[in-house]
Design a protein around this nucleic acid. Structure first.
Lengths: 132, 132
DNA sequence: CTTAAAATACGAAACACTTCGTACTATATA
DNA sequence: TATATAGTACGAAGTGTTTCGTATTTTAAG
């Protein structure tokens, strides 16, 4: 049985994953430029390189090194990582009370009518599947 | 204007806050014992002391030192910290998509019928207040 | 073939948090 | 009052992540 539970990318790793999830396979330079353009941060090229190399060793990323310039690819799924992080966050900050988190979430953040409808539809579905 | 935005307790600090939120004012020894009893972790007394002293310096905690044994009190509200952490988490892991987080949350975790009803009621309220 | 430009590899410093040992201080009790 | 006990203060080591400088390698251009 392959254990894949201990995935917990760091903050910096997560930012790089976000870019790869959105853009698909990318070079270190491309990732570094996006990191620097997004915010006002200024991250050196070799810093980004180093982190991506570490992520490669951790199997968070794979890479095609048939060319001189390596092309990196996210090896983990966005949804999987999000769920894993959510789980940790839920326990750390809300002691596992999903509904309390949901209340804060809906109360504090703008949500479009479509999104609200979508969530309500999911709740209806959950209520039907588990009427006991 | 008092800026109180940069509250972001660390993992260890959050565990201590959880205990103080639940139990109310407590001594270092009480906190340390609860920390050690909760999980299988074994945290030295002076470790807990040190972290609580740092939290005191950061104004996360206040303390009554009129007695030899100081009594510590959480200076931040549970809901405030949770909302602040949620905000950070939402941006870091979900790039601000609250509904996506909500879908994962409801989909992946057990929620009681009461909780679901409560969330649905909140959604109804939000839909009424913002019909535009 | 030589040189310049751009990439990778890697060690080590910088940082933040956690952990603990030890020194010091206050209190109770024999 | 002496001694054991329990507390606080604090420095420093341990740990993990981020950051960057520098050496090396590859490629393209002159």
């Amino acid at each position: 049985m392959i254990m894949k539970d201990n995935i917990q990318p760091t903050q910096g790793e997560l930012e790089i994953l976000q870019i790869l999830w959105k853009k698909g396979p990318s070079t270190v330079r491309e990732v570094n430029e996006l990191l620097n353009q997004d915010q006002e941060k200024s991250i050196g090229y070799t810093t980004t390189l180093k982190i991506m190399q570490i992520m490669f060793e951790k199997n968070l990323l794979s890479r095609n090194d048939s060319q001189r310039t390596h092309v990196y690819l996210a090896e983990v799924r966005e949804g999987n990582i999000q769920s894993a992080l959510l789980d940790r966050f839920l326990n750390a900050a809300y002691k596992g009370s999903a509904s309390k988190l949901a209340m804060h979430l809906l109360g504090n953040h703008e949500t479009t009518p479509d999104e609200l409808a979508e969530i309500k539809a999911l709740i209806d579905k959950l209520e039907k599947n588990k009427p006991s």
